[in-house]
Design a protein around this nucleic acid. Structure first.
Lengths: 341, 341
DNA sequence: ATGAAAGCGCTAACAC
DNA sequence: GTGTTAGCGCTTTCAT
């Protein structure tokens, strides 16, 4: 077998010996680089295939100082928003020879710090990171890293390097303005209990700011933590309407709890949007299947993913390129749950 | 600054020079290995922190022949099932020093082959791979790989190495038996148009087999492709009920389209489960928030993730351990959409 | 408790 | 078109 230890993995040398060609030439064939005669190429490929050789990228990366990996650090996979961002990223990277590698932080800053550290320690070709708020240590690492970095989702703040996102503060403001313009006056808010979801927090800030300018304030608010978002939306909505019967609009921090609230209102025979209006945030596909279309705002998830990946790819191809900050503009989808005036 | 090229990333040597200690000792401090005096440790840590040094895992991995990465290859992130598997995997790996790395195949065998190849070329500490069906080339690579492998989700077939999953064939059978036992006789099926979703296919096979044994056959069937699953569930259900008015049970290949069907039936004022019964598959959290509880089967997603990660972790700690095949048993949740007899 | 030497498996750079 | 040499940044092993 040409090997003493049967459990050792194959190396270039094994392919070299099996094909009677130098390691260097084998390397060239396998990387499709430089000129190799067809005859040699065939012999090498045959030998590699027969042995079942898989190149060792660790050694290759160390020698070439090149790693075709792009780290993607996101808070969660389970809220329908990041999977779509990933779709955009994957679609773009597919044609660039770069591979996305996902890390999940669960909205915990210490997990983010650790994940960023781990990713950077693999010297990736780029890093895509959700949000603009990071620990001091994370920011220091990111600045030092020397790889293209794109902070995504949010634009309200100071990016370390490049950024692609929307203004959540403005999104909240816009929604509040639309609601007030439609004549609603007694507005309640429902959201998740997540101190580190800064984007939800900014939306609410913008929302309340616009209310204040209209001489209004939130009539009630409710937060939840864990469990089925749809169910929690129902429960919170029931609680709010019971506690504050004067409420005529329900603003949700995301579509999933908004959908739960909508189903609850319809169950109860509440006139929507006459007696009560509702709005969520994200523009998730799910809404298309509900009995009534929930008002929402598209968070530009796919486009955020594609633009971020494009920045990484471009800066990889041309290291002279500088940072780039791209703001996207979500559109308000009034659906059927806001009164038309 | 002790460096000619300001863009060069820091190495052990930089920390060594900054702290006046040999590279070897710096390495020991940073890996928390071997005996180092407290004074030296402090000096080294201080220097590393001040420089913003991030170790190069590529070099470390090459030298130590050890990579603390576990590849996870799954078909999709967007169907609520794999995120929960990931949660189970992450929870277990967190305490082992191993890090999950996700790759997505979109149910395409060629993408799976490429992803497996890429992952193996990083010489990970283990690989977790969804499903038992893989291309011949993939199987060959996996056999040669020399790393612990766990195929997850499915148990109906021949694993390459370890496996954790449920029998989808039996799950389909069980559901059919429950439906028939409840007196339904005119049963229609709705599912996704995905030739490579072998688990959905096996469920349907088991389902039809049980029907056959009861002297029945599917009355109608409908497939969809892409778009909002909830909406497609509504549309397919409307089409089936229009086309085959005699249908008294709707079996869906997943909960999301089942939920759409349920909402449609309720919208239409159809008596559920009297006139029509419904059932899905997966036991997703979403169902908790619907007006009526859809019958379903829990796919043991979290437990599949944890068990798979445990196998990898255990075999990493003790390389003498052999493969392990674990079958889990999903429970049928009748909900409110199957008649009680 | 600390240091020196060798080498992990590959590729850049150059020679032929 | 192919081979040779050196070395990527660490860790292993052995010496002190």
């Amino acid at each position: 077998m040409g090997s003493d230890d049967p459990r050792r993995t194959l190396t270039l040398r094994d392919v070299s010996e099996a094909s009677g060609v130098s390691e260097m030439t084998v390397s060239r064939v396998l990387r499709q680089r430089g000129d190799v005669s067809d005859a040699t190429r065939e012999r090498v490929l045959k030998a590699a295939r027969e042995l079942g050789y898989v190149p060792n990228k660790i050694a290759g990366a160390l020698a070439s100082q090149r790693v075709n990996l792009v780290g993607v650090v996101i808070p969660s996979l389970s809220n329908m928003v990041f999977p779509e961002v990933m779709t955009g990223i994957s679609a773009v990277l597919e044609n660039t020879g770069l591979q996305p590698v996902v890390g999940v932080t669960n909205y915990l800053p210490e997990r983010e710090e650790k994940t960023v550290y781990e990713m950077l320690s693999w010297r990736p070709s780029g890093l895509i990171l959700a949000g603009l708020e990071h620990s001091a240590a994370s920011r220091a690492m990111l600045r030092q890293a020397g790889v293209p970095l794109v902070e995504i989702m949010d634009i309200d703040g100071q990016p370390v390097d490049s950024a692609v996102g929307i203004s959540h503060r403005r999104a909240g403001r816009q929604m509040a303005e639309a609601i007030v313009a439609s004549g609603y006056r007694n507005i309640a808010f429902m959201g998740t209990q997540m101190p580190n979801d800064f984007r939800a927090k900014k939306r609410l800030e913008g929302f309340e700011e616009a209310l204040r300018r209209a001489g209004l304030a939130l009539v009630d608010r409710e937060y939840y933590d864990g469990g089925s978002a749809l169910l929690k939306g129902r429960e919170m909505t029931a609680a709010v309407l019971r506690r504050s019967p004067q409420v005529d609009f329900l603003y949700y921090s995301n579509d999933m709890i908004g959908a739960g609230g909508l189903l609850y209102c319809l169950d109860q025979g509440i006139d929507v949007p006459g007696r009560v209006g509702l709005a969520g945030f994200n523009g998730v596909e799910l809404l298309d299947g509900l009995p009534r279309r929930l008002a929402t705002m598209d968070a530009c998830r796919l486009e955020i993913g594609t633009k971020a990946a494009q920045i990484i790819a471009a800066r990889n191809a041309d290291p002279e390129l500088g940072p780039e900050v791209i703001e996207l503009f979500p559109t308000l989808q009034p659906g059927d749950t806001i009164r038309q005036r």
